Computed example of a mutant assay.
Amino acid sequence: MDSRVYTLALSTGIAVPCLVAGNPSGRPLLLLHAWGESRRSFDRLVPLLTEFRIFAPDLRGHSDADKPAGGYSLVEQAGDASAVLDSLGLASAAVLGSSSGGYVAQQLAVSGPQRVDALILAGAPLTLAGRPAFADEVETLVDPIGEEWVRQSLSWFPLVRPVPPWFVKDRIRDGTRVAAQPSGPASKGCTAPFRPRKAELSMARPSSSGEAMTICWPGATRRSWPVG
C-alpha cells in the first residue's frame, strides 16, 4: 500500500505529521490514536483498509507533533482534528477514535457533526461523562516519562490474542515521547460532560472477542476485518 507522511501546519497554531495511505479514490477515514500513542499505533490496521483513504495524524503533545504548553482541553483537541481535515482539504470524513482518541472523535462529532460521516469507537467509552480511571496516575507524571512506567501501563490492557513484539516496542517508544506536563489538562478535558446524540451517528465497535474491527457506514452493509 502506498503511503506518505506529510507535515501539516494547522490553523490552531501547531504542526503535526499525518500519514496518508490507501486508495486515493476511497472514502476518507481519519484515525485518532489514544493518549500515549501515535499514528504508528494503527500500523497493523491500515494495511487491512485497502478500500479507504486513510489519514492518521499524531495528536498534539504526542510523538512527532508539536508539544505546546496549552491547548489540551477536549474541545481544543477536537479543534485540532477539524483543522487536520481543513489542512487536507476534506469537508468531512469518517472518524475512528481508539481508546481516549474516541473522546476526541466524539467531541468532534458534537462540535461539528457535519464533518463526521461516520463515527467508529475502538475500545472507547460511549459517553464523555465521568472521569477516566487512569486520570489520577497520569496527572502525576513529569517529563521525561520513563520506559519502565510505560511498560507497566501497558498491563492495564489485557491481551485477547498475541501481539507482535515489534508492536509492543513501538508503543513503549510512543509512551516515552508524550509531553507529560500537559497530560493533566488533557485528561481533565476528557471528563467534559458532553454526550453525542446517538440517533445522529453511526457507531461501530470491535467484537466482544476482540477478533475483528467493524466499520459501518450510514445505510451500508456492516463489514468486518480481522485484526492480525
Score class of each variant (00 low, 15 high):
Gly89Pro: 04
Gly89Glu: 06
Leu90Glu: 09
Leu90Lys: 06
Leu90Pro: 11
Leu90Trp: 04
Ala91Gln: 11
Ser92Glu: 12
Ser92Val: 00
Ser92Gly: 07
Ser92Leu: 04
Ala93Thr: 15
Ala93Pro: 02
Ala93Ser: 09
Ala94Gly: 07
Ala94Met: 10
Ala94Cys: 06
Ala94Ser: 09
Ala94Asn: 02
Ala94Leu: 02
Ala94Pro: 03
Ala94Glu: 08
Val95Trp: 11
Val95Thr: 14
Val95Ile: 14
Val95Lys: 10
Val95Pro: 06
Leu96Arg: 10
Leu96Thr: 04
Leu96Pro: 05
Gly97Val: 00
Gly97Pro: 14
Gly97Phe: 00
Gly97Asn: 12
Gly97Tyr: 07
Gly97Ala: 05
Ser98Arg: 11
Ser99Met: 09
Ser99Tyr: 01
Ser100Ala: 13
Ser100Met: 13
Gly101His: 13
Gly101Glu: 06
Gly101Ser: 12
Gly102Val: 05
Gly102Gln: 12
Tyr103Thr: 10
Tyr103Lys: 11
Tyr103Ser: 11
Val104Tyr: 02
Val104Trp: 01
Ala105Pro: 10
Ala105Asn: 03
Ala105Lys: 10
Gln106Glu: 04
Gln106Leu: 10
Gln106Met: 15
Gln107Tyr: 09
Gln107Trp: 06
Gln107Gly: 02
Gln107Met: 14
Leu108Tyr: 03
Leu108Gln: 04
Leu108Asp: 00
Ala109Phe: 01
Val110Ile: 15
Val110Thr: 10
Val110Leu: 05
Val110Asp: 08
Ser111Thr: 14
Ser111Cys: 08
Ser111Phe: 01
Ser111Glu: 13
Ser111Asn: 11
Gly112Met: 02
Gly112Glu: 12
Gly112Ser: 05
Pro113Gly: 07
Pro113Val: 11
Pro113Gln: 04
Pro113Arg: 15
Pro113His: 11
Gln114Tyr: 01
Arg115Leu: 00
Arg115Lys: 12
Val116Pro: 01
Val116Tyr: 03
Val116Glu: 01
Val116Phe: 03
Asp117Ile: 01
Asp117Asn: 07
Ala118Asn: 03
Ala118Met: 01
Ala118Gln: 04
Leu119Tyr: 03
Leu119Phe: 07
Leu119Glu: 02
Ile120Gly: 02
Ile120Ala: 14
Ile120Asn: 03
Ile120Pro: 03
Leu121Glu: 02
Leu121Cys: 12
Leu121Pro: 11
Leu121Asn: 04
Ala122Asp: 15
Ala122Cys: 15
